[in-house]
């Protein structure tokens, strides 16, 4: 464990908590893409199947359980408890456009051809693009609530910090995994446009509104 990985994990955890609290406190999930949340749930479930086969540490197990349970809770809040507030009309990105290519790529480019390894690789590829329905929703409505911007910033920072962690692990532990690195790079790049707007607008006290 190094500082980049720890802060990355904490950013990830913070993002999830911000989102749950936003929905719970405002009793509304408007501006939130249910499709991105379903995709993240699929990511966690397919990646953390090793909870049943492989013990790493109490920290690792606890975080995995938190990610799976909180993402299921988020999906429940959006599609059941507060479904009247869900922006169904704007959340129109097709999930199969992300899921099917991720499956195909995971079958082709992976370390080993085993069920667990292909599912793990699929989860890495799907996570890289799972935010697209959310970014698409923001671009369709042209704005995001400030709290949603904080959520996106925390979630985007997490994989960026993991990139620094992988550089660290390459130099100090001799670890290298190109699948994680390339997917993590793509994932971080997808947030760049948003990061720019976040720093230039939200941090200056303005709402995130897309330029016309």
């Amino acid at each position: 464990m190094n500082i980049f990985r720890l802060t990355g994990d904490l950013a990830h955890l913070t993002a999830i908590i911000i989102l749950l609290l936003k929905i719970w406190k405002t009793r509304s999930c408007s501006g939130i893409s249910g499709k991105s949340q379903i995709l993240f749930t699929v990511v966690y479930i397919t990646r953390y199947l090793d909870l049943f086969t492989n013990y790493i540490s109490a920290y690792n197990t606890l975080m995995k359980i938190i990610f799976v349970v909180s993402s299921l809770a988020t999906v429940f809040l959006i599609y059941f408890k507060f479904k009247a507030t869900y922006d169904r009309n704007h959340d129109t990105f097709r999930m199969e456009f992300l899921i099917i290519p991720s499956i195909i790529l995971a079958l082709l480019i992976r370390h080993e051809f085993t069920v667990m390894e292909v599912l793990w690789t699929f989860s890495i590829y799907l996570e890289a693009v799972a935010i697209l329905p959310q970014l698409f929703l923001v671009s369709k409505t042209g704005e995001a609530e400030t709290i949603t911007s904080h959520y996106l910033f925390a979630l985007g920072s997490y994989r960026g910090l993991y990139l620094l962690n992988w550089i660290w692990r390459y130099y100090f532990e001799n670890f290298l995994d190109w699948i994680s690195i390339v997917a993590g790079f793509v994932q971080t790049v997808l947030y760049c446009d948003f990061f720019y707007l976040y720093v230039t607008r939200v941090l200056h006290g303005r709402k995130l509104r897309l330029p016309a």
């Binding site: 790493i56 670890f175 995994d177």
Partner: peptide, 10 residues
């Protein structure tokens, strides 16, 4: 060079 097959990350 080892690969990250330990899957010790989140």
């Amino acid at each position: 060079l080892k690969s990250l097959t330990l899957k010790d990350e989140l």
